[in-house]
């Protein structure tokens, strides 16, 4: 009997992580696209780090930043009554941080690509900055943002290194599907490794097709 818990957990964790990455990432991308200063590229570089850092290194830093002995970790514990590390919340944090750069980069590019004259036209007819963003800029940038969200979701679903470091590998609690595949191979459980890989590979291909379609339709 196949254990579906890791798949279910992976989907849940990456769904929540994607929502968080969209809320935070699109807002930050909007600020980065609109308020250019010398700090803009610094901030963008910091939020791009998760792409270039080895995932285990990213996980190590997150562990250092959010562990039970850190200020942030203790604050979390006093707020929610339990530590963040080695929990499903930890897995969500790891997946969110991994997904964020994809959302931010795609959203920033898409928002910058919106014709500034159209945004000016919206201001001239009386829209507030907030309404310009909501009614004009973000809808016009939606496709590019969508591509970034899909890539971010795929990245969140596939994360291994940061998740293992921050959330651990507790079967039935924090063991996501990529981690379960690793475990299965270690244990010589060919069938589980094969099924898990097929499911993850299949979802990755679907995401890739979706993203390719978005860019094909744009032309």
């Amino acid at each position: 009997m196949t254990d579906w818990f890791p798949l279910w957990l992976s989907l849940r964790v990456s769904a929540i992580a994607t929502v968080l990455a969209v809320v935070f990432g699109v807002a930050l991308a909007y600020l980065l696209a609109k308020w250019q200063s010398r700090w803009t590229s610094v901030v963008e570089a910091v939020f791009t780090l998760p792409i270039v850092l080895p995932p285990t290194v990213l996980g190590y830093y997150l562990l250092t930043l959010l562990g039970t002995r850190s200020t942030l970790g203790r604050t979390w514990e006093s707020l929610f009554g339990a530590p963040l590390v080695f929990t499903q919340s930890g897995a969500v944090v790891a997946a969110t941080v991994s997904a964020l750069p994809f959302v931010i980069r795609a959203a920033r590019a898409a928002i910058s690509n919106v014709d500034p004259r159209v945004e000016q036209a919206a201001r001239v007819v009386g829209m507030s900055e907030w309404k310009v963003a909501r009614v004009v800029t973000l809808p016009l940038a939606a496709r590019g943002i969508g591509a970034g969200v899909a890539l971010g979701f795929a990245r969140a679903l596939g994360d291994f290194g940061a998740t293992v470091m921050l959330a651990g590998n507790i079967p039935g609690q924090t063991q996501t599907l990529p981690v379960a595949v690793y475990d299965a191979v270690q244990a010589g459980d060919e069938a589980t490794a094969r099924t898990g890989s097929l499911v993850l590979g299949g979802i990755a291909v679907v995401v890739l097709i979706f993203v390719t379609q978005i860019f094909a339709r744009r032309r």
Binding site: R117, A121, R123, V124, V136
Partner: peptide, 15 residues
């Protein structure tokens, strides 16, 4: 937003 001007651009700049 507060000037009450209307603008028509060369390429319309419609939404």
């Amino acid at each position: 937003q507060d000037r009450r001007v209307g603008m028509v651009y060369q390429h319309a700049a419609l939404f």
